[in-house]
């Protein structure tokens, strides 16, 4: 019978807290950068300018149709051979996570915008609004409401995806679990604690997404 012992784990609690902090930082950072890049990619796709649209779409498919783990390994180990200089692991991690987030966010944004009835664009134009005024005043306020649940879901996924950066030795929460396991030889406790930590952070976020979605359904 296995005897649980959390004492060694509790001694390493500062490692877990630091790891959790690093995970939060990479999530927040990649969401912020992904948001801006994603918006740019989204507007490139909606621009009606052929080459811009194709480039943006190519970018999206590249990052949506390859595993994040492979992207991470490629950008950290392979890309420097092409560039001719090394990238620190934190930069490779943040870059990959941000590009990955941008590809998916762009699709969330685009989906929200194209779901708005064509008549809304026309009604805005018909009172003399410029394209940008229609977008800002008429389309985006409606589209943002619609894309909110998908956006939060994608962000929750992003939080979980940061665990992959541990493979290039970024000291996130998952990486700390393997460190603590190595020191204590208690994999059951180490990995249970790390799973519980992820859950404790993500469960409220998930509930919040459900709440927003529920409220929107009632609103519509």
């Amino acid at each position: 019978m296995y005897t649980w012992s959390f004492a060694p784990i509790i001694q390493a609690s500062d490692l877990f807290l630091w790891g959790a902090w690093i995970t939060v930082v990479y999530t927040a950072g990649s969401i912020a950068i992904g948001l801006v890049l994603g918006l740019a990619v989204c507007f490139a796709r909606l621009s009606g300018i052929g080459p811009l649209n194709w480039f943006a779409q190519g970018f999206q498919e590249l990052f949506r149709c390859t595993p994040l783990l492979v992207q991470l390994l490629w950008i950290y180990y392979a890309l420097p051979l092409l560039l001719g200089f090394d990238m620190p692991n934190w930069a490779a991690a943040l870059l990959t996570l941000s590009l990955y987030a941008a590809a998916f966010y762009a699709e969330v944004f685009r989906g929200g915008i194209v779901s708005i009835d064509k008549g809304q664009f026309e009604a805005g134009a018909a009172i003399g609004m410029s394209g940008w005024q229609v977008m800002r005043r008429i389309i985006l306020p409606q589209a943002i409401r619609r894309m909110m649940p998908a956006f939060i879901n994608q962000s929750v996924t992003q939080f979980k995806n940061t665990s992959l950066v541990s493979v290039i030795s970024v000291a996130d929460l998952t990486y700390m679990a393997s460190i603590v396991n190595g020191q204590t030889y208690r994999p059951l406790e180490s990995y249970t604690v790390v799973a519980v930590l992820y859950f404790v952070i993500l469960f409220p976020m998930m509930k919040f997404a459900d709440y927003i979605e529920h409220r929107m359904r009632r609103g519509n």
Partner: peptide, 13 residues
């Protein structure tokens, strides 16, 4: 030159 549409196209928000 104003326009009124068949499907109203009011801004729902």
């Amino acid at each position: 030159v104003g326009m009124v549409f068949q499907h109203f196209n009011l801004f729902p928000h």
